[in-house]
Design a protein around this nucleic acid. Structure first.
Length: 533
RNA sequence: GGCGCAUUGGUGUAGUUGGUUAACACGCUGCCCUCUCAAGGCAGAGAUCACGGGUUCGAGUCCCGUAUGCGCUACCA
């Protein structure tokens, strides 16, 4: 039985790269009917926080990646890990290193490593040489008993080659001479990453380790540990990294909130849309065989979209997923910092819009509800008497929205009288034609006189009045749009009339706000413009 | 420094065992539709498949080298 795990370390918000690892693990487990387990790797006590753990769990929940069994906290197993490391010493597979701990700054470790390697190479020092590696056991025991501090290192064979086959990257080979005697247990007794993962994965009976490519070379060390513990080695599948537009590693510190999963929730992403997008980052379905049979057997399995798109429901993702379609090269997450329109990858945004306008209302409405509620725009009637109206309104405006947030920002005028006028819209559609100040209230009168107010009758009324006043219908249409919604763009105006209803439409057509708010300042700017000349 | 991994249009990807004009999605441009903006429809720009060799009748696909990027090389994870 397949058992996979997602093993994040709770040292910050859930990174989208980590989220994708979780997704691929989940997809694989659900596809083959295995178990998807969650393990919080909180061994780094200084950096791990409960808040981060919470955010990870919330993130998984938001994405809809449900995990099986109880979640495991790695720190709970620390004692077992210590015991296991000591056992390795007893068996001669590991040794105590009494070298005093070197204090190393976290900031430029990479630089230090390279510098030291260069220096060692220049002086012909083998970086693997350790005076304690072959210390007689009695002496080692004696020094330990005397209370001397020591780290425990794995005794890596001097000669040989480590090999494994990665499901994604294929045959991997590494000479033992390239593998240092890694530290298993710190001198303060803390088990280190490589020891802990292996031990926990053994205990959890993990069959497939699916994780980021940054662990590819570490895998050789871990395999050594599996052997040391006499445990079966699982299969490995490493995932290509997700990079920033400048091809640097995507990091929270450097790239800010775009890398944090919670951002997508908070900025109005539909979970399924984000899952869909994430799945296509580093994986692609087998297009040679995904059309005919499955669709014929179960038309519902295919989302309601034209062929040739990349929209996949969660269910289809599970059906189509396979580890061997994951590819090797890193993916660039394409976003533009400081550009609100492209704050995240365009394709992700497009996909979200696609979901918003094609989702079954039953799925969308609750999301809109919680968005409106959060912005204090929700009214209980929408769930009651005005249920139908609400559904119609949402269906009308969702066509051009990109995120759930749009329902409370661009869509605000549909749910509240307290909305803003877009200045450019007012100038273009209203102030440009002085007669509108008189005509619009008259249009309101006409509208109120209509018996049954619908898109159809609203159109007839408006067009008749336009002809009567010898202005183009377009003038009224555009002006009405701005009067009713505050904006220059939006759905077909007559549909807007119908949704707004007769009373509200008439009221807003009579509003003086556009003139009050912008006319005087208009005159002022004109004056300023003249004096400036 | 050493070792490893990767490299198809701006981005995400397809490209079955090497075989004719390198496919799709997003984005971009134009046109149509139209009361605006989207959506939709149509058309289009954009890739000498990182570079250089080699194998072959023929290479994006195989081999070697170079460059670039990334990862690992921690008593971080």
């Amino acid at each position: 039985m397949v058992r996979v795990r997602f093993a994040p370390s709770p040292t910050g918000y859930l990174h989208i790269g980590a989220a994708r690892s979780a997704l691929f693990n989940w997809l694989f487990a659900r596809k083959v009917g295995g178990k998807f387990l969650l393990r919080i790797e909180d061994t780094d006590l200084q950096r791990s926080t409960d808040e981060s753990t919470r955010s990870i769990i919330e993130g998984l929940e938001w994405l809809g990646l449900d995990y099986d069994d109880e979640k495991v906290f790695q720190s709970d197993n620390a004692e077992k890990h210590r015991t296991a490391a000591r056992k390795l010493v007893e068996e001669g597979k590991a040794y105590r290193d009494f070298t005093p701990k070197e204090q190393r700054g976290d900031a430029n470790v990479k630089q230090n490593i390279a510098d030291r390697a260069r220096a060692n190479a220049a002086e012909g020092i083998d970086h693997r040489s350790n005076p304690f590696r072959d210390l007689p056991k009695e002496e080692s025991d004696a020094r330990a008993a005397a209370g001397e501090l020591f780290a425990i290192r794995l005794k890596v064979a001097r000669e040989g080659v480590s090999r494994f086959t990665d499901i994604v990257y294929g045959e991997q080979e590494r000479d033992y001479s390239e593998i240092e005697d890694l530290v298993l247990l710190r001198s303060d007794g803390h088990p280190l990453y490589n020891l802990s993962v292996v031990l926990d994965d053994i205990e959890m009976n993990i069959t497939h380790v699916i994780r980021g490519q940054d662990h590819l070379t570490n895998t050789h060390k871990q395999i050594l540990l599996y052997h040391a513990f006499g445990a079966a080695v699982p299969q490995f599948a490493h995932l290509p990294l997700i990079l920033a537009p400048n091809k640097a590693k995507l990091s929270k510190r450097k790239h800010g909130e775009v890398v944090s999963l919670t951002t997508y929730r908070d900025r109005g992403f539909v979970p399924d849309a984000f899952v869909n997008y994430l799945a296509l980052l580093g994986w692609s379905p087998d297009t040679t065989q995904y059309s005919a049979e499955i669709v014929r057997d179960d038309p519902a399995a295919r989302p309601n979209v034209e062929p040739g798109t990349e929209i996949f429901s969660r269910r289809r993702l599970i059906e189509e997923f396979s580890l061997d379609r994951i590819h090797k090269s890193p993916a660039v997450f394409n976003f533009q910092e400081n550009d609100p329109r492209h704050w995240t990858d365009d394709k992700a945004l497009w996909m979200n819009a696609e979901y918003i306008r094609t989702m079954p209302p039953g799925d969308l409405l609750p999301m809109v509800k919680s968005e409106l509620r959060a912005e204090k725009l929700w009214r209980e009637e929408y769930d009651d008497d005005e249920r139908e109206w609400f559904a119609k309104a949402v269906d009308l405006i969702r066509q051009r929205f990109f995120t759930l947030k749009d329902f409370s920002s661009q869509g605000r005028a549909y749910f509240s009288e307290d909305f803003d006028f877009d200045e450019a819209a007012v100038r273009k559609n209203i102030l440009k034609e002085p007669r509108l100040k008189e005509l619009l209230p008259q249009l309101a009168d006409r509208i109120e006189a209509v018996d049954s107010f619908t898109a159809l009758t609203a159109e007839a009324t408006l067009r008749a009045f336009a002809e009567e006043s010898s202005v183009k219908a377009g003038l009224f249409i555009n002006a009405s749009r701005t009067m009713l919604t505050g904006q220059a763009v939006g759905p077909s105006m007559f549909d807007v009339f119908e949704i707004m209803g007769c009373e509200r439409s008439a009221m807003r057509l009579r509003s003086q706000r556009p003139w009050n708010e912008f006319e005087s300042s208009d005159a002022e700017t004109q004056r300023h413009g003249e004096t400036a000349k």
